[in-house]
């Protein structure tokens, strides 16, 4: 799964895997990737994305944080904040 998206610079491999699973998105992603760049990143799949992040990293996000996620960079910043 990871070899197909080797050009996703600076993006954590877990997030690449999550994007492949939740959005079936196999194309490269970057820190700047946002809902506009991913076909299936709608509000419903956003919920699936959040629950997958929570499950993968063993953290809990608040509703504010759910809304805050508007790009891959936002996700990485949140992960850093939660210390994972």
């Amino acid at each position: 799964m990871m070899s197909a998206v080797a050009t996703s610079d600076g993006v954590r491999p877990e997030i690449i895997a999550i994007f492949a699973e939740v959005f079936e998105h196999e194309a490269p992603i970057s820190i700047a990737t946002s809902p506009g760049d991913v076909a299936r990143w709608d509000s419903l799949n956003h919920v699936a994305l959040v629950s997958m992040i929570e499950r993968t990293f063993g953290i809990g996000l608040s509703m504010d944080e759910m809304i805050e996620i508007q790009s891959v960079g936002d996700i990485q910043r949140l992960l850093a904040r939660h210390g994972v």
Binding site: S43, L44, V47, A48, L61, S62, M63, M66, I67
Partner: peptide
């Protein structure tokens, strides 16, 4: 999940 309820009017968690 109250977050899902307020975020998207989703009444039952997954």
């Amino acid at each position: 999940d109250p977050r899902l309820w307020f975020y998207g009017r989703i009444a039952f968690a997954e």
